[in-house]
């Protein structure tokens, strides 16, 4: 890590966190040396998000891998300055969300097992906690699949992946206000659906 890289990272100031800031600076200096860290940092979020958008573990795994591979190839073609300015997570999510959407479209063109995000090895951290929560959590996973795409992506990125509105806006190329309202409307629908199912 050179002094120059550190300085540039501080000066660029456009990233949301210091970690992401120095990560892109180091990525610009040493793509191959730093990319494994990017993969480590983003893969769980990408996989979780894709899983909840697609409702299918294998598709989510494929999309996550493909998004990161495409990101690496794109970074290899980018000038150093452009890499420094990148907002890494939203940028990779633009790629991933498009891949998710394409996959849903191609899936809708051929017969497929019904969407379900509720899979048996999808337990939380521990068996006790899983047993306590799996009921509502599993239903939510299914209900997400029923949301319109705009709401589903916004809710998943905000509440499952944990991205702030401005990052989601950048990722989905929608105004932040739209993202905010997509999240709220999506949540409202989930709440109604969950309540309805809870009290038949």
């Amino acid at each position: 890590m050179t002094a120059t890289a550190g300085q540039t990272a501080v000066l660029s100031g456009t990233m949301s966190t210091m970690t992401a800031d120095t990560l892109t600076a180091r990525l610009a200096d040493d793509l191959d040396g730093t990319f494994p860290e990017v993969v480590r940092e983003l893969s769980a979020g990408l996989f979780s998000g894709a899983f909840r958008m697609l409702g299918n573990r294998q598709d989510a795994e494929d999309v996550t891998q493909e998004a990161l591979v495409r990101a690496y190839r794109a970074l290899g073609d980018y000038p150093v300055d452009r890499i420094r300015e990148l907002r890494l997570r939203p940028w990779v999510w633009t790629i991933a969300a498009n891949l998710c959407r394409n996959r849903l479209r191609s899936r809708s063109r051929r017969p497929q097992a019904p969407l379900t995000g509720h899979d048996p090895i999808d337990a939380g951290p521990g068996p006790d906690e899983a047993a306590e929560h799996s009921d509502l959590r599993g239903r939510l996973a299914d209900l997400l699949a029923g949301l319109p795409w705009s709401m589903r992506t916004a809710v998943v990125l905000h509440h499952v992946v944990g991205m702030p509105y401005d990052e989601i806006a950048a990722a989905l190329e929608r105004p932040a206000a739209t993202v905010r309202s997509d999240v709220h409307r999506g949540l409202a629908r989930l709440r109604v659906a969950a309540d309805t199912e809870e009290q038949p």
Binding site: A44, R52, D122, R137, H159, G162, L187, R191, A194
Partner: peptide, 13 residues
Amino acid sequence: IITELGGLRVDAP
């Protein structure tokens, strides 16, 4: 619901 949505985050395989 928000808590449970957060719980839908999983580790990468």
